[in-house]
Design a protein around this nucleic acid. Structure first.
Lengths: 206, 206
DNA sequence: GGAGATCCATACGGCATCGTATGGTTGGGG
DNA sequence: CCCCAACCATACGATGCCGTATGGATCTCC
């Protein structure tokens, strides 16, 4: 993880703006948005802030770029990736399993949620969350639930997701004591999705 | 030490340490622990930091006092308050309903969770969470669930609680769109608690 | 009404960070 | 070979906060 401040044989590393964004996202995941400071980041990257202010106008520009990168990456996240699955029940199940599987994304989401009051963070977080929630509501209404109930259960599912990764930050040992994550998700999904009309096994997705 | 507050009509209110703690907790709920700074708080209270450093040794002492006050207040929270209910199923239901009802405490919990990485906050948060989770696990095992399953479902319930108030911070409008909070909690509890041990399953619960 | 305790204001030095200014180093095209 | 542009280091002033020092004001009690 730790690189020597001087590359052993290379001449000059020559950082790019993307390198700064990546470093910022790592820092956000670890210590939150507030910890994204120019000089500490520069020290971590083995340069000075002279480098930073060449690539970015100011600190806010870096934070915005990091958030934009996160949002763009969410375009490739589970919600979009599995939106094509026709069967609503299966789609919801797949999405939930995939969401809990992706620990790294979950951690980043929890870190951003910790800064959700930050006016820079909130719009990105709200967009992503509303999109995911809306997909849940659509799926549940498609399964025959009335609007109100679909809203409730989608929120329950999404709150369980958000809370899981939040609790993982606060008490990782206690959360890790739930060893069978698949069973955890299955409990959730089986409990909150309406009853299956008929147990129909294999229809693997593309 | 501190003396009893005097309600004289003089122009000097004479702040107490508790006033600072209360202000700190309000600030934590709004902007997180990191926002608890001496000079801004003093400005908000209409005094200077000369007052603060009379009551507290330093900034950390105030934060610790605020966290201790929160933890002490949790002693009067739902988990303790309803621990005496004998029937495990009823106890869990009551606790869940009461927890979601207490919006103010939920908001404060979410705010503290946002700072769960802070080494000062984490111990308090972890203690409270482990205590609540343990009560959930105890209740569910008492209802006949095996250890593993009880752990999963207790975590699911608690994650839904934590996530609900976290999401309320990030997207209050979307969460508020779930108008029937009682139905929301009922969905959760009915979904995750084991079936009533009635010999005939045709007896609907209240 | 004076001594001590309580509570607060003011002033100061110190630290970390932001953002700017400016100069140095390196590589590639004319 | 030289110069320009990309990239970075260094130095500087400004800001906001922390914690200390010290004195002033008010209250208590004898």
């Amino acid at each position: 993880m730790s690189q020597s401040p001087k590359r052993s044989a290379g001449p000059a590393p020559a950082l790019s703006a993307q390198d700064w964004v990546r470093a910022a996202l790592r820092l956000i995941a670890r210590e939150g948005v507030a910890a994204v400071a120019v000089e500490p980041l520069a020290r971590e990257l083995g340069v000075t802030k002279g480098s930073f202010y060449w690539h970015f106008a100011n600190r806010d520009a870096l934070i915005q770029a990091a958030l934009a990168a996160w949002e763009a990456d969410q375009g490739r996240d589970v919600v979009i990736r599995y939106e094509g699955i026709a069967d609503s029940r299966k789609r919801l199940r797949v999405i939930m399993f995939a969401a809990f599987e992706d620990q790294e994304n979950g951690r980043l989401f929890a870190a951003l949620s910790a800064s959700s009051e930050d006016p820079r963070v909130n719009p990105y977080l709200a967009r992503a969350s509303e999109q995911r929630l809306a997909l849940g509501i659509r799926s549940l209404t498609a399964l025959g639930l009335p609007e109100e109930e679909a809203r409730r259960k989608a929120l329950a599912l999404y709150a369980a997701y958000a809370g899981y990764f939040q609790l993982q930050r606060a008490m990782p040992e206690a959360v890790a004591r739930v060893t069978d994550l698949s069973a955890f998700v299955r409990d959730l999904v089986d409990a909150l999705l309406p009853d299956d009309p008929a147990p129909e096994p294999s229809t693997p997705p593309a």
